[in-house]
C-alpha cells in the first residue's frame, strides 16, 4: 500500500476519535531521513557509513511499521463503526452506560474523589447513544 492509498483511506473514515497524523508520520519520516543524510561525518570511513545506513534502514522500517499500525487501526475503527451500526440495541445500551457512569460519578464525589473522568465517559456514551448514522 503506498502513502497515497493510505491518505485516501484515512480521509474516507470520519469516525470521531480517530487518529490524526498519518501526514505527520510521513513528514517525520522525511525529516528523519534528511537528518540521517546530513548527519554523516565526513571522515568517519566506511564503517561509519555502514552503521549510518543500517540505522537509516532501521528507522525507515520503524516508520513503515508505525504507518502500517496506524492504517490497521483505521481499518479496525472503520469496521467497529460499521458493526456498531448493526447493533440495534447499542443506542439504548450506550444510554444506560452513560446513566450508570453518572451514578458512579455521584459515588466518587461521596468518596471525596474527582469524578471528571467518569463524567467525561458519561458524556461520551451519551453522545454515542444518539449517533446512529455518520
Amino acid at each position: 500500500m503506498n502513502v497515497g492509498e493510505i491518505q485516501s483511506f484515512v480521509s474516507s473514515q470520519e469516525e470521531p476519535g480517530g487518529i490524526p497524523g498519518i501526514n505527520g508520520i510521513r513528514l517525520s519520516a522525511i525529516l528523519l531521513s534528511l537528518l540521517l543524510v546530513f548527519s554523516f561525518p565526513g571522515t568517519g570511513g566506511a564503517a561509519d557509513l555502514t552503521n549510518a545506513a543500517a540505522e537509516k534502514t532501521d528507522e525507515t522500517a520503524k516508520t513503515s511499521r508505525q504507518m502500517e499500525d496506524e492504517t490497521r487501526k483505521k481499518i479496525l475503527q472503520a469496521n467497529d463503526f460499521k458493526l456498531r451500526g448493526h447493533e440495534s440495541l447499542f443506542p439504548e445500551q450506550a444510554k444506560s452506560l452513560a446513566k450508570g457512569y453518572r451514578e458512579t460519578a455521584k459515588m466518587i464525589v461521596e468518596q471525596g474523589c474527582d469524578p471528571k473522568p467518569v463524567l467525561d465517559a458519561a458524556a461520551y456514551f451519551e453522545k454515542q447513544s444518539g449517533r446512529s448514522e455518520r
Binding site: F9, Q13, E133
Partner: peptide
C-alpha cells in the same frame, strides 16, 4: 450518510484489509 457505504473510493489493498 450511511455506514454501509464509503465516503470515498477504496483501493484493493484497503478492501482486502477491511
Amino acid at each position: 450518510r450511511s455506514r454501509e457505504m464509503v465516503c470515498s473510493p477504496r483501493s484493493y489493498r484497503e478492501i482486502l484489509a477491511l
